[in-house]
Structure formats: C-alpha cells, structure tokens
C-alpha cells in the first residue's frame, strides 16, 4: 500500500514536470514564431539569457543585497515577534478574546494602504519596508503559534504533571515540540509573506531594490531586464519555499503527521 502511494506520487510528479515543461516549450514556440509579440512576453530562453546578463552587470548587486537583507530582517523579526506575541495571547485569555476578531480580519485589510503612513513615520529608506513586511508576516506566525499551542493534547500535559516537570520544562519539552508542526507552517508563511511584503513595497513606492528595478524596467519598456528580474525573484522565492517545504516534509514523515 505504501509502495503504491509512492508510485502514484511519482507519477503525479512526472506529469507535473511534463506539464510545466510543455507550457514553457509552448511559450517558447509562440514567441519564436511571433504569435506573441515581444512587446508583451519574451521567449523563456531570452528571459534566461537576459537573466544571466543582468546578474553579470555591476549595478544589480546593491539592489539584490538591499532586498535580501530587508527580507531577512523582516523574516527574523516576524518569526521571533510573532512567536512571542502568539505565546502571550495563548496564555492570557482576556487578550486573546480581545484580539481574536482583529487577527481574523487582519489579512482582509489591504496593508499597503498604510504604507505611505510608514514612509512618513520612518522616512524613505529600508526601514518602512522592513516594518511593513514584518507587520504583514508576523500575524501569520502569531496565528500559527496560537493554533499550535491550543492543539497540544491535554493528555501530554497530564503526562508532564505526572513527571513533575516545572513550567519551563513543560513548555520546552512538551508544549513546543508538540506544537512544532504548526510553528513550522507559521515559519513557512512568514518566509513567503516577508518576501511579498518587501518586494511589493519596493515595487510601488521605493527607489531601489529588486522590486523597484522591475517596475523601473517596465516603465522604460526594457522587457528583457524586466522578465529577467521577475524570473529571478520567482526562482529565489520558490527555492526558499521549497527548502522549507522539504524540511517540513521530512519532519512530518518521521512524526507520521
């Protein structure tokens, strides 16, 4: 039965690769033949070529560094902050009751409406972007932390009392490992949302960074550079997400979750 499932998984993977590959191939042909004008979409091979050229140019490094460091800081802040806040909300029922409706509505608010405000408060520069991305990503971590801690089975806590664990030991040795799968999906979301927050912010309002470079290339009808950078961002984000996903899968397989 397990073997059968693995085989089915494999088959789906192959079909998926084939579908994606033929989509790229079809686009390539459509562009080469001229069905799709180069002013709209350029051929995938041209995108890759442009990407290599762009990465070799000197000016891209600074933008890259700015974007990635902003993402890294936002990621760190949102994961740590989100965990701590989620933990406090889990332990203090009053706060939790009070904040629940806002947590539920949080992702309904278009955050970018508040972006100008952040610029006014934090000035132009990387700070408002980092704050924006952190605020955007943190709530996912808060919600995941609360969900994880809520779902720790009561019987495990009883077991902790049977072994007379102190509160800290109980948290460290029972609650956190039991909540780990939820925490990890929170981390996964925080990673994705940090990228989205930073790049979207750069795109709309910044004067530097990868997001801005894409918008700038669009404004200047520089399609090769634009597609190269889009491809680059999507590749980086997808790699990052896949790495987290793979780690999660490994953990889940072991725990049979």
């Amino acid at each position: 039965m397990k073997v059968g499932k693995a085989k089915a998984d494999n088959r789906a993977t192959w079909i998926r690769v084939a579908v994606l590959a033929s989509a790229v191939g079809a686009l390539e042909i459509a562009c080469r033949v001229g069905w799709v004008p180069a002013t709209m979409v350029i051929a995938p091979s041209a995108m890759v070529k442009a990407l290599i050229e762009t990465l070799q140019s000197d000016d891209i490094g600074a933008h890259l560094q700015q974007t990635l460091s902003a993402v890294a800081i936002a990621m760190g802040l949102s994961i740590v902050g989100g965990f701590l806040i989620g933990f406090v909300l889990h332990w203090v029922p009053f706060l939790r009751r009070a904040f629940n409706p806002f947590l539920a509505a949080y992702y309904a608010i278009p955050h970018f409406a508040f972006y100008p405000l952040l610029i006014v408060i934090f000035g132009l520069g990387p700070a408002p972007l980092i704050v924006l991305a952190t605020l955007f990503a943190m709530v996912a971590m808060i919600v995941a932390t609360m969900a994880g801690l809520d779902r720790v089975p009561r019987v495990l806590l009883k077991t902790a009392r049977m072994h007379r664990l102190s509160l800290l030991e109980e948290i460290w040795r029972i609650r956190l490992p039991a909540a780990a799968p939820h925490l990890l999906s929170g981390v996964k979301l925080a990673v994705a949302y940090s990228f989205i927050g930073v790049i979207a912010g750069e795109f709309i309002l910044s004067t530097s960074g990868i997001g801005h470079e894409i918008a700038y290339a669009y404004d200047n009808f520089d399609n090769p550079r634009m597609y190269a950078l889009i491809l680059f961002v999507l590749a980086i984000v997808t790699c990052f997400n896949m790495a987290v996903y793979a780690y999660e899968r490994r953990l889940a397989r072991r725990r049979g979750a």
């Binding site: 089975p153 019987v155 495990l156 077991t159 490992p177």
Partner: peptide, 8 residues
C-alpha cells in the same frame, strides 16, 4: 486512556 506517547 488516550495515546500519550510523544510523537517527536
């Protein structure tokens, strides 16, 4: 009564 083994 419930399964109290630690899955991790």
């Amino acid at each position: 009564q419930e399964d109290a083994s630690f899955p991790w």
